[in-house]
Design a protein around this nucleic acid. Structure first.
Length: 572
RNA sequence: UGUCCUAUGGUGUAAUUGGCAACACGUCUGACUCUGGAUCAGAAGAGUUCAGGUUCGACCCCUGAUAGGACAACCA
């Protein structure tokens, strides 16, 4: 980054796209010299679940903005509710943000770091006559709040004296009252059009130990009371959140107006959250999927969590480029998952080494190829990256090819193998199908071919024009691999769209996971966990952590774009 | 029967602040290819939710409608 807080020519070049509305605001603030022309953002997750792709959008936004304008981004855990939060989640969140490629340096903060200051501010509000202790039960308070079209009713405890409120609040803090017996409320306006101004609750009592402060506190601040002040204490300039907090903004500003006097002021800006087709983004419902074993954990490769995507084989770069592509705006949006898939393919195409693997094998015998001979053929590791080099793969008389690559009665434009047809074996020879051996049920047992012995890559007849090239694996050299084929977790584009009396879980796709055993080239034996491969003509796969010495497990990240499937479908 | 937000090709995002709508993905052609991948070339697809108004000129400003969303946890 440069010394200038304003975007320089370099960063302008790298981000040649048009500014989004938040960048527009930031640049305007920079021009005005607001907040000493600082840009300081924060990513404020509540540690009550794992981060998902929607959070990734927010992370990219917050950290990206700071990077672009030479600012900083804090990681702040919004840990004001001990009943829902846990260290397991703070650890996973840190890992995920780091994995995505962002650094908060030493600025790892917690809302709980500010409990003391927040408490003192609460006493100030009481002293100013702007807060009071309410002894009513939750239901009563809720009832008195009124509705969006009718004003609320004032609490009978609303006009307690300052002294009484102060004493009561201190006793709340001291643990003298039971959970739910009383709360601290701001004294604003029970008839306000904005429901959040109808004497919002500031503090409630909870004796659940907090994952950081233990049992030191038994009163905890509510989100509205904690968030803006935390931003303020950290010197945040642009507090970016999703649209549902828009209604909270006036209250966010109100607290700061009551409590602070400096010219510096953080500004809350809301954007539309990410929605993806065929994807559930609700943290609560993702938790339900995990808790009730609909999936195998937060990092199940079918989950839209960062950890799930990572295990599935997504790269940080692919997620960042996705976040970049979808943009940032204020209108509700539903992005097609295929755009996410496009982003991984694009990245993996450049990075993943190729390998040959046959998912649905059928035996193929080269009748004119010598028996007992194994010849090594040279295969390119990655045509997109010459530096990836090459490797040797064994070839012999008996091979496996993909069952789908052979058809007895080929449709038009089928340029794979069929009786009397020719096809090229990748990195190998051109072969011709002579005979098909079937069992009594008509199931193909074996395909018998002759091999043009001069057609090996680099050979005399190697450059003959052959329409199709198929992949293969040497039968006696192939190794068995466990492959997990994932499909979308939900059957419907909108998982929340279910018939009356139904449940969103009815939309779960029962075929979202298929486990098969496939034949892979022997070099795959040494594949390291989480490394990426493209199985040629099939798709991108990565090694699952479940892999053991005896059992190598591959996850299908995403299939290759399949034009043939489309053609075949259109042919009917 | 309230307040606020939003409305641009199939999807998403732009339009240098009022000068006859661009980009990405997708779709469709064609070329190339020892991956029906990738790559390359090209095409179709919106006249900006609707109705008025201001203006020489409106996606942009004004008015009204319509549609979608947010808001009544001791959640965040």
């Amino acid at each position: 980054m440069t010394d200038s807080p304003i975007r320089d020519e370099n960063s302008k070049a790298e981000g040649s796209r048009a500014l989004n509305f938040i960048e527009e605001i930031v640049e305007e603030n920079l021009r005005e010299g607001k907040n000493d022309s600082r840009v300081h953002t924060r990513f404020p997750p509540e540690p009550n679940g794992y981060l998902h792709i929607g959070h990734a959008k927010s992370i990219c936004l917050n950290f990206g903005l700071a990077q672009r304008y030479g600012g900083k981004t804090n990681l702040r855990f919004d840990d004001t509710n001990p009943t829902k939060e846990d260290v397991e989640y703070v650890d996973s969140i840190k890992e995920d943000v780091r994995w995505l490629g962002f650094s908060w340096d030493d600025r790892e903060f917690y809302a709980s770091d500010y409990f003391e200051q927040l408490y003192n501010w609460a006493e100030k509000l009481i002293l100013d006559g702007k807060a009071y202790v309410d002894d009513q039960p939750a239901e009563e308070i809720s009832k008195q709040r009124g509705t969006v079209t009718t004003p609320g009713v004032e609490s009978p405890f609303r006009n307690r004296s300052i002294d009484e409120n102060l004493t009561l609040f201190r006793r709340m803090k001291a643990g003298e009252f039971a959970e739910g017996s009383c709360v601290l409320r701001a004294k604003i306006d029970m008839a306000h059009v904005n429901m959040f101004f109808r004497d919002p609750i500031l503090y409630r009592i909870s004796f659940t130990p907090h994952h950081r402060t233990g049992t030191k506190w038994c009163i905890y601040p509510m989100y509205d009371y904690a968030h803006g002040q935390s931003d303020y204490l950290e010197g945040i300039t642009h507090s970016i959140c999703t649209l549902e907090f828009e209604v909270h903004r006036p209250l966010y500003d109100w607290f700061l107006d009551q409590l602070t006097t400096t010219a510096y002021r953080p500004r809350q800006i809301e954007f539309a959250r990410l929605n993806l087709t065929y994807t559930m983004m609700s943290k609560r419902k993702l938790l339900e999927l995990v808790k009730n074993n609909y999936v195998k954990g937060w990092d199940d490769p079918r989950m839209p969590t960062i950890s799930g995507l990572r295990r599935r084989g997504y790269t940080p770069e692919s997620i960042r480029s996705f976040a970049d592509r979808i943009g940032v705006a204020r209108r509700d949006n539903i992005i097609d998952v295929s755009l996410l898939e496009f982003s991984v393919r694009e990245d993996l195409n450049k990075k993943a080494n190729r390998a040959l693997a046959v998912l649905n094998p059928v035996k193929l015998v080269l009748t004119n190829y010598p028996e007992g001979v194994t010849e090594m053929l040279t295969a390119i590791n990655n045509p997109e990256n010459p530096e990836a080099g090459s490797r040797e793969i064994p070839f012999s008389r008996e091979l496996y090819i993909e069952r789908e690559d052979f058809m007895e009665v080929p449709p038009k434009k089928f340029f794979r193998l069929f009786p009397d047809g020719e096809v090229r074996l990748k990195y190998g020879y051109i072969i011709k199908c002579d005979e098909v051996v079937k069992d009594e049920n008509g199931e193909i047992l074996e395909i018998r071919c002759t091999c043009d012995m001069d057609s090996k890559t680099g050979g005399l007849t190697a450059n003959r024009k052959i329409k199709g090239t198929i992949h293969w694996v040497s039968a006696k050299d192939a190794i068995d691999l466990e492959v997990r084929l994932f499909d979308r977790l939900f059957k419907t584009p909108d998982p929340e769209d279910y018939p009356e009396g139904g449940d969103w879980k009815d939309n779960l796709n029962p075929e979202s996971l298929k486990v098969i055993t496939v034949k892979g080239e022997p070099s795959l034996r040494s594949a390291t966990v989480l490394s990426h491969f493209q199985f040629e003509r099939i798709g991108y796969f990565n090694v699952d952590p479940d892999t053991t010495a005896e059992n190598i497990v591959f996850n299908r990240t995403v299939s290759l774009k399949d034009t043939w499937q489309k053609v075949a479908q259109n042919e009917g």
